[in-house]
Amino acid sequence: MLSLKLLQNLWKRPEARAFPPAQAEILAALQARLQEASQRRLGRSLAVRHVDTGGCGGCELELQALDSVIYDLSRFGLSFVESPRHADVLLVTGPVTHNMKAGMERAYAAMGQPKWVVAVGDCAIDGGVFQGSYACGNGVTTIPVDLVIRGCPPTPHQILEGLLTLLEANATGG
């Protein structure tokens, strides 16, 4: 059986990362958007649905890192969910290859109202290095984007910062 020490070592909570502050400017813009749409508030939690539109997998690695014990998303009221029907946020990574465009649009359409779209990573924002390819567009252009999180890939901390800003707007705006 496992020794107690072993368990303690492994189970010792890694210092959960500090709570990154919401970014005031982006927060104000998001709140304004929410008001405009007079959307129902979702409260202090957000269910996030991820769609990879053909990126290199780097952004997914950082999302996986964010979803690990280190960041412990649940304490912020954030969670990744499987079905678009249960999601408040569609988190898009990848340059939106032509082969994935329809899939992304279907996932967006399947979500209930209100809904947010977050483009994570340079290639989801404008195509990044893949701009001009015959096989992809310039990032997310066919569904409305509420928030962009830059980086190739952005760090888990940056992604968390963005999502928390969205959470804040959600809880206080509208």
Partner: peptide
């Protein structure tokens, strides 16, 4: 095929250090 980005076409005609991206 859903993640096909056209990498080889993007590399073509570029300097090797640029294509490294």
């Amino acid at each position: 095929g859903y993640a096909h980005k056209g990498i080889m076409a993007l590399m073509r005609g570029k300097l090797p250090r640029v294509a490294a991206r």
